[in-house]
Design a protein around this nucleic acid. Structure first.
Length: 492
RNA sequence: CGCGGGGUAGAGCAGUUGGCAGCUCGCCAGGCCCAUAACCUGGAGGUCGCCGGUUCGAGUCCGGCCCCCGCAACCA
């Protein structure tokens, strides 16, 4: 019986092009998904786009476009990552889809039934100069930095609020009971401290008159849901919650729904989420409180990755150091980009991307390392027409276990290092045993066969990381007569 | 005393249970000449931020201090 495995990324907001940071998140998720599939699990891998809210609405207005048309255009660009990065997700949910809107409304009603939604005055600061609402973090010393001479107006607006504060205790229990609920450990500590410090209810609606681009609040035509509230629900709307859940409940009592199979149950939560460090609170606290309120199972685990800086600085448009994943793939290939994200960037800490570092890593590991070794061995075999019978399976036991150990801790960089150690050892063996000096073909074969087998073993275990490259090598090294092929990674 | 992360060779980093300080790039010397001017070996280069403690032994544990970087909620 294969295990059911669920993994989801956060949904990127479609007001900008996909950037390298999201590429990191989705490639990490992809490796985990592929790894689980290779182990025989049935995998549900979700991603999608977050499309409601002020920024998108305003941007579409600026462009004179229909808001949905604008969202469609941008959502398509995110889905393009699938091909560019060779991703294996099987679900792409958009928060403007009817099934998601319906789920969000159902979810809202459940929270409301539990007495967790209420209306209250919400004071906002408004800068007449900018004609915009301002949050505290946008202000310096309580005044708008762009219009320091103007006084801010305070506008009181009625909003719906979610009783976040009510769930403080339950959230803390959740963290205590599941010591690896959030990885890395210090992020769990961070969220624990945050929740322990006290929670304030948060606003979950906006006045439709001011900003109509959102999910309508059930039973109140004046309001739409604040984008965060609806966006988080994608993790379950993508599974067919709640329409399917309800159908199953009435029709087939004993058969678990897709939702239960993948999202899990209260006793056995099953959902793995992956998110950036800016999303810790939303995913590990707010979303979990929302699930508790709606009477649904918590997530099982949340992985928090860091940010990618460029030359030690934050990527920003004004600095001109923003990295476009499509451009990189175009120039250097999918697997080269995947390799950098997985091998060079620490899975949990902030990482750094510069084109110089990328090229150094590419040449050292992909061109001089893997690519050169494959071509080295293939040529030696082809030249003397040495035929081998290598086996793809059973895999080399110890090596596979070491990779699995790294993967269970989501240490992609360590797992890859283990594989590269094998490649290095192969190069060393060749230099020491000098098969090219040996006249006797049987003797030559004796040296080359285990080296070729090592390459095949590495290729097989490399599949979740560099699927395309791995497949090429497996094909090449499964032939009786291994032949030289085009270089995998030409030196740059 | 808000919270968290970091400070290890010229640069970038690894060091999970305390046991002779490692990796990649760069630099120097040698080897090889099968391979994508690739590969292999050796070398130079570090008071592991500072001070104190525990220990036979600390980069690793404990206490204090200094510096750098994020975050401080309804900015999606």
């Amino acid at each position: 019986m294969p295990d059911k495995f669920y993994i989801t990324t956060t949904l990127p907001y479609v007001n900008a092009k996909p950037h390298i940071g999201f590429a990191l998140e989705i490639v990490q998720a992809d490796v985990i998904a592929r790894w689980r599939r290779a182990r025989g699990d049935e995998v549900f891998f979700n991603t999608g786009t977050d499309e409601h809210g002020l920024k998108i609405w305003r941007k579409a207005q600026e462009l004179g476009m229909d808001t949905q048309a604008y969202a469609d255009e941008n959502a398509a660009r995110f889905d393009d990552l699938k091909r560019a990065l060779n991703l294996s997700y099987n679900a792409f949910i958009r928060t403007t889809e009817p099934r998601h809107v319906a789920a969000a409304q159902e979810f809202w009603q459940r929270c409301e039934q539990h007495g967790d939604i209420y209306k209250r005055n919400y004071k906002i600061k408004y800068c007449v100069g900018c004609e915009l609402e301002k949050t505290e973090s946008e202000l310096t010393d309580g005044i708008c930095p762009i219009h320091p001479n103007l006084e801010l107006e305070t506008i009181a607006e009625e909003n719906y609020f979610f009783k976040f504060s009510k769930y403080q205790k339950k959230l803390l229990e959740l963290y205590v009971k599941n010591s690896d609920f959030v990885l890395p450990k210090w992020r769990l500590k961070e969220i624990q401290n945050f929740v322990a410090g006290g929670l304030e209810d948060f606003s979950i609606s906006r006045l439709k008159a001011k900003m109509p681009w959102g999910v309508p609040v059930p039973g109140d035509d004046e309001h739409v849901m604040y984008v965060w509230f609806d966006a988080l629900i994608n993790y379950i709307s993508t599974l067919g919650w709640s329409v399917e859940t309800q159908n199953f409940a009435s029709l087939q009592k004993d058969k678990p729904s897709t939702f239960e199979k993948f999202w899990g149950t209260a006793k056995k939560p099953n959902a793995l989420q992956i998110a950036g460090k800016d999303n810790l609170r939303q995913q590990a606290a707010m979303w979990q409180a929302m699930l508790l309120s709606a009477g649904l199972p918590s997530s099982k685990q949340i992985l928090i990755h860091g940010f990618i800086n460029s030359g030690g600085q934050k990527m920003s448009k004004s600095l001109g150091n923003v990295v476009d994943p499509f451009e990189l793939v175009e120039k250097y290939g999918t697997d080269a980009v995947r390799y950098y994200l997985l091998a060079e960037i620490s899975p949990f800490e902030d990482g750094d991307f510069t084109i110089e570092k990328f090229i150094v890593r590419y040449n050292a590991d992909l061109a001089n390392g893997l690519g050169n070794l494959v071509s080295r061995v293939a040529t030696l075999l082809e030249k003397d027409a040495i035929t081998l019978t290598l086996t793809l399976s059973p895999r080399e036991r110890g090596l596979e276990e070491r990779i699995n150990k790294g993967m269970r801790a989501y240490q992609f960089n360590n797992a890859l290092k283990i594989l590269w150690d094998v490649l290095r050892a192969a190069d060393e063996t060749l230099s020491r045993q000098k098969p090219w000096e040996i006249k006797d073909l049987a003797g030559k074969k004796k040296i080359l066969e285990p080296v070729a087998q090592d390459i095949l073993n590495v290729a097989e275990l490399l599949q979740p990381f560099l699927p395309d490259t791995a497949e090429k090598i497996i094909k090449q090294f499964s032939a009786k007569q291994i032949k030289k092929s085009e270089g995998l990674f030409p030196r740059i």
